[in-house]
Design a protein around this nucleic acid. Structure first.
Lengths: 230, 230
DNA sequence: GTCTATATTGTGATAGAC
DNA sequence: GTCTATCACAATATAGAC
């Protein structure tokens, strides 16, 4: 059987999302984006269905295409939005002009609070980045703000300087800034990413998990600082 | 338009996978499972295509159904296999009759070695568990071996006892066994799960990432033990 | 046990009325 | 701007020859 070689027209949105002309448009577009966010977070890009998003937004499927043209673009918009709420805080906190210990405290507090209210974000982000690593590029450009090629190395330099000062004081063991950062965010993010597993393995329901995180909020700063003592 | 309410016959495999009768069968079934593993690890259950698995196994698509009946069952087989190579080591190591410090050393070494050779496993597992939490049940029954409802609490009791001894010695600060376990596996697993992100953010290629892990293998035991000192 | 061909349904996307 | 109806193709699954 011969496949018809007719060209499929490239999809074209009648509107360009992101620049609402009227209040009505803005409201609808926001509702769709919110619904898309919920559905993509639950099922991932590949597992999500446009129909489910439409239903959750209380509109029909054609309207999704009117605003966002394709599933791919809608999912990119969601990814962008979620990532841009998570990563800037990391860069800003670690790059701020404050002592190292304070950076640790702030980062733990910000992330545990934030993720407690967005339980699905870590699993979603890890999943998306794992299956669509090309999106990391987009993440960097859109989510950090400034040019990451200069911001990240500058950040690492700053941390290295702060660590070296403390090492000279004798109040800290030497550690590479990358290892420092990754240890810190591992301890903050992983419990959320692995929550479905932990919930069952340790028999935690939602309330127990939240108590677990609350306890962590108290203990993690000491745990982490102790790990760095000479 | 009325949907025809004809029943679809429930799919039925002519063979039951897992009990090969001949060497030939075993070889083919293994090739399919290996190909499925590779494809599901890359794309996830929802993103994977049966055609791609067939191509990677060097057979055609109908054969996948002959051996595994449905995509769902094939993906469950892969999940089961991957999970059963990761979780028993955790339970066995933490439950072994050895000192706490040795458990820490062993677990770090086992996991960093193992995951270095299976870079996609953490991202895949977190993704699947996030999008299909019902599979956690399956994970526990199949992957741990014994009945988890008795094994896990026993494990935590053992750890608690060991921790309390060290606290009485004055060689360790008090910490809940759950927090202990989660801190440890966070530090081991998260860098692999977040690898696509870290690679770009820190500009690491594959070789640089492996060097990063090698360094971690040396530093993490000290880091973790230091975190527990009083 | 393995293949080709095909049935059947799912799903993203579009046309066109209102 | 929003809807209904429908298209076109992708993807899982099955039938049946070899």
């Amino acid at each position: 059987m011969i496949k018809p070689d007719r060209q499929r027209k490239p999809p074209r949105a009648r509107r360009v999302a992101g620049r609402p002309a009227t209040a009505k448009e803005a409201a609808t577009e926001e509702r769709i984006l919110g619904a898309a966010r919920a559905v993509f977070l639950r099922h991932g890009t590949a597992g999500a269905r446009m129909q489910e998003i439409a239903a959750e937004a209380g509109v029909n499927q054609a309207l999704l295409h009117y605003y966002f043209r394709t599933k791919e673009r809608l999912s990119a918009a969601v990814f962008q939005q979620v990532a841009s709420r998570i990563f800037p805080a990391l860069v800003q906190t670690l790059g701020a002009g404050i002592p190292l210990d304070e950076k640790i405290d702030r980062l733990i507090e910000i992330y545990l609070d934030n993720l407690s209210q967005n339980l699905f974000v870590p699993g979603y982000l890890i999943s998306e980045l794992h299956h669509h690593p090309e999106r990391v590029q987009q993440l960097l450009s859109g989510a950090i703000g400034a040019d990451p090629r200069t911001v990240i190395p500058a950040l690492l330099k700053t941390l290295e300087r702060q660590i070296n000062e403390r090492v000279r004081d004798g109040t800290m063991r030497p550690i590479k800034p990358q290892q420092f950062v990754i240890n810190l965010i591992s301890l903050c993010i992983f419990p959320f990413a692995a929550r479905p597993m932990l919930s069952i393995v340790f028999g935690m329901d939602d309330a127990a998990f939240m108590r677990f995180i609350e306890q962590r909020k108290k203990e993690l700063p000491d745990f982490f600082r102790a790990a760095l003592r000479p």
